[in-house]
Structures are given as C-alpha cells and as structure tokens.
C-alpha cells in the first residue's frame, strides 16, 4: 500500500467523522438557542458551540457578528472555513477519490452520493425548519460510510488506517467538548447543589448523542461526576476517550505486525490506552481535569503525527 493511500484513507475517515461531530454540535447549538433562559431571552450559546467545534478563533478572526445565522453558516456551508461540514464532506470525498481503488464500491457510493447531494443544497433555502433535518441527514450519511466500511472492507492495512482516522478524530472531538465545559463538571458544582447546571450537563451529553445512553447506564439523574466518567473512562460508551483508545491501540498493533514497522506510533498509542485503563476519576480530578484534557489532546495529536511518519504519509 502506498503511503499516500494510507494517508488518504486516514483523512477520509477523519473528515467524515468530523462532519458527523460538527452536525451534532450544530444541532445542540440550535436546540439551546430556542430554549428560554428565564430572563426574557434564550439560552443561545453559539460561542461555546464554535469553541467545542474547535473553530472559535477562526470565526473571531473574521470580525463578523456572532448569531444563529452566521454561526450555522460558518459551521455548515462556509467554503473559506477549512472545517465547515461542506469542506469536510468534500475533503472526505476527494481523499476517497484519490484512492478509489482502495475503497469498496459501497464505501465509494456512500461518499460520492453524500458529496453530490450536499453540494446541490442551496444554503439560502435551508431555513430553521430544514436545518435539523439536514443535520440528521449528515449524521446518517457518516453512519452509512462507516457501515459500508465495516460491512465490506477487507481487514487489511487500509481498514486500520480508516479506523485510526475515525477514532483519533472522535477522541479529539469528545475531549474538546469536555475542555470547553470542564468547569461545570468540577465536583464543586454538585456540592453547590448544581440544579442550575443541569442543562449544561444535558448539553454536553447531547453533543455526543449520549443522553439516553447515560440514563440507561446509570439509572440516575445527571451528576457532573458521572457525566465526566461516562465521557472519559467508560469503555461501554462509544464516544468516550477510553473507548477511542481501546480501538486506536489495537489498530496500531495490527499495522505494526502487518508491516514490521510503526514502532513510534504504537508506543504512543499503547501508553495512552494503558493509562486510561489504569486510572480513575478521582485521580484525574486530583491531577486537574483541565490539565488532563489538554494533555490528552496533545498526546492524541502526537499519535496522528507519529502515524504519518511511521507509514510514509508524504
């Protein structure tokens, strides 16, 4: 397999996963913006949405007014914004197109038709009514690519590069969402009888589609400690940091075995997975939640960098 092919598969999966996460964040932002804040306005918090999506600095650099319309346009359609959903879908598709032969027909069709249909959408015609439906559709299409991959792709190197793209991106996204709201998850909130923070915890869970899963798993009301544990440490939760690492490390191991290389990325990935398995929330809180999340983001990015070097991405 060419290094460029590996790189394209990795980025194809990353961009599709990113599009899905952005769609989820935009939906949460939209939902919050129509909930009254009890003071005559709405809870609207697009700033947090853009921060969670990792694109607040890019937006602020524009000097544009921040409101629902500008934020949504920036997240969904903006051609000049490298990580708009539009550009993610296009990049996913172009990466797939460059390695067309490494994809199955099902995967290519999922990628290609998603891009063709999205490109045909006129942003001016997507009113608030259709916004939710469109974002749901983006998430479904990401699911379709993933389903096509799981159901049709040979379990060789290519599969593992796709897996790594998906889970490195997912871990990054979940960590960012937590990082933006880490303060409301600190134990002090519960001590203060944090009923007022209830909706913040709810928003965090919604950002990773985990409200129902949380209730099912804990059989309990929302508590910041459990929300943090759920998204960081629970191996059952498919968007938790632990879960992502539990997939990253074996794929790195499989690649190392298949190719006889990959030592650097495997060492980083195994160490991170082992630490998440060996720690608990008290330890993390003692160490500092913010510091923990920042460190995770850095180490996750380092795995991505080592992968590119180990496997000759360019």
């Amino acid at each position: 397999m060419l290094g460029r092919t590996a790189s394209s598969l990795f980025w194809m999966a990353r961009y599709m996963e990113r599009a899905e996460n952005l769609a989820r964040l935009a939906q949460v932002g939209h939902r919050v913006s129509i909930i009254p804040d009890g003071m005559g306005g709405y809870r609207e918090d697009w700033k947090a949405t853009l921060a969670s999506a990792g694109c607040l600095p890019a937006f602020e650099a524009r000097g544009a007014k921040l409101d629902a319309a500008t934020a949504q346009n920036f997240l969904l359609f903006d051609r000049a914004h490298a990580s708009s959903i539009r550009n993610c879908l296009e990049n996913a598709r172009n990466n797939g197109r460059a390695v067309r032969t490494a994809l199955t027909r099902e995967m290519w069709e999922a990628l290609n038709s998603t891009w063709i249909e999205f490109a045909a959408i006129d942003p001016a015609e997507v009113g608030p009514g259709r916004m939710v439906e469109l974002l749901d559709w983006v998430r479904q299409r990401s699911g379709q690519l993933r389903g096509a991959m799981l159901g049709s792709l040979l379990r060789d190197e290519g599969f593992h590069f796709c897996q790594l793209g998906t889970f490195i991106e997912r871990g990054d996204n979940t960590a960012r969402i937590l990082d933006v709201k880490y303060n409301v998850l600190l134990p002090v909130n519960e001590a203060l009888g944090g009923e007022r923070n209830q909706h913040q915890w709810d928003t965090i869970l919604r950002s990773v589609s985990a409200v129902g899963a949380y209730r099912y798993f804990y059989r309990d009301r929302l508590r910041p400690r459990q929300v943090a544990e759920f998204l960081i440490l629970r191996p059952e939760m498919p968007r938790s940091l632990r879960f992502c690492c539990d997939f990253i490390a074996p794929s790195l191991g499989a690649l190392a075995e298949m190719t006889g290389g990959g030592a650097a990325s495997l060492a980083l990935g195994s160490a991170l997975a082992a630490e998440l398995r060996g720690t608990d929330l008290d330890t993390i809180l003692r160490h500092g939640l913010r510091e923990f999340l920042q460190e995770f983001l850095g180490r996750n990015a380092a795995i991505s960098g080592a992968l590119a070097t180990d496997y000759h991405f360019d």
């Binding site: 397999m1 060419l2 290094g3 460029r4 590996a6 690649l255 190719t259 290389g261 496997y311 000759h312």
Partner: peptide, 16 residues
C-alpha cells in the same frame, strides 16, 4: 509524488 528513481530502479513509496 509516489515515485522515486533511486539505485538504478523505479520505486513507489509504500507504508512498508
């Protein structure tokens, strides 16, 4: 960009 001429042969850069 995937190809390189080296040691009297044509090579492609692969993950191995």
């Amino acid at each position: 960009s995937d190809l390189v001429v080296e040691d009297g042969a044509l090579w492609m850069r692969t993950i191995r």
